[in-house]
């Protein structure tokens, strides 16, 4: 399903964290959101998965405003991997992943179990099923939370820094798995090389505004990277895959 963000603004204590952002993600695409710290990526994503109501603007899945839908109905369309990974009590991994079934009606215990098992495998954490969530490492937790989001069987998946805490092998693995899992994806990524290699389209956020949009190879120009991230970037071609990759220097040595 299509995701559309139309003129979304968020203001906190007089500061505009997100300023009239408009962007979209076509059905089945993997769309990346990049930008320096504090550029408004997480705040924008929070408006999408309904942790926060935007002060202005609309978020639509297919043409429906998600903030006007019943909470559970919205959660059947939209799942998220937020940045926080708190747990007050020691749930098992299976229990955490099974929470993804909460918004669904007409559930059966057997059906749920099957879906949970499948997501555990999809996220590559089936071997952790009976472990306590609190005993996991940061990277393992992250993958379990991705499994929970997949268990929601969403049409749109919102990921806030999905590769946080992951080692390099798992970074590549998780992005590949999410890409092939089906839903339209909107992901905030801080690793520009990962973003360039995995996203169909990129939107660059700077000071709460979208300053560039398009395919990664076009958007990530050395001029833009200097302006937005304050780094000197050298564009190179990946000798194996042919993807655009970057090497960075500080602007002022």
């Amino acid at each position: 399903m299509r995701l559309d963000i139309e003129g979304v603004s968020v203001e906190v204590a007089g500061t505009r964290l997100v300023d009239e952002v408009t962007l979209g993600a076509a059905t089945g695409t993997f769309v990346g959101l990049v930008g320096p710290n504090g550029s408004g990526k997480s705040t924008l994503l929070r408006c999408v998965y309904r942790a926060r109501r935007p002060d202005a603007g609309v978020v639509r899945v297919e043409s429906e405003d998600v903030h006007r839908m019943a909470p559970r109905a919205a959660a059947r369309l939209l799942a998220a991997l937020p940045q926080e990974s708190a747990a007050d009590f020691d749930f098992t991994v299976t229990e955490v992943v099974a929470m993804g079934r909460l918004p669904h009606r007409e559930r059966t215990a057997a059906g749920d179990r099957q879906i949970v098992l499948r997501s555990l495998e999809q996220a590559g954490v089936a071997h952790l099923a009976t472990r306590g969530f609190l005993s996991l490492s940061g990277g393992e937790k992250q993958r379990v939370l991705i499994a929970r989001a997949l268990t929601q069987q969403p049409r749109v998946l919102v990921l806030d820094e999905p590769t946080n805490h992951l080692d390099i092998a798992h970074q590549l693995d998780v992005l590949r798995r999410v890409r092939t899992s089906g839903p339209t994806v909107l992901a905030a990524l801080h690793d520009l090389n990962l973003a360039a290699a995995h996203c169909d389209r990129l939107h660059v956020l700077h000071g709460g505004r979208v300053v560039a949009s398009g395919p990664p190879a076009e958007v990530l120009s050395p001029a833009l990277l200097a302006e937005v991230f304050g780094v000197r970037a050298h564009r190179v071609r990946h000798p194996g895959t042919g993807a655009t990759q970057f090497l960075f220097d500080p602007l002022t040595p």
Binding site: Y49, P71, A79, D88, F91, M99, P103
Partner: peptide, 20 residues
């Protein structure tokens, strides 16, 4: 009970699971 599980995973997770 299910909503309480979601709540104890944090506010953002809870909201994303359809539990305001």
């Amino acid at each position: 009970a299910g909503a309480l599980d979601a709540l104890s995973m944090g506010d953002e997770t809870s909201a994303a699971l359809g539990v305001p």
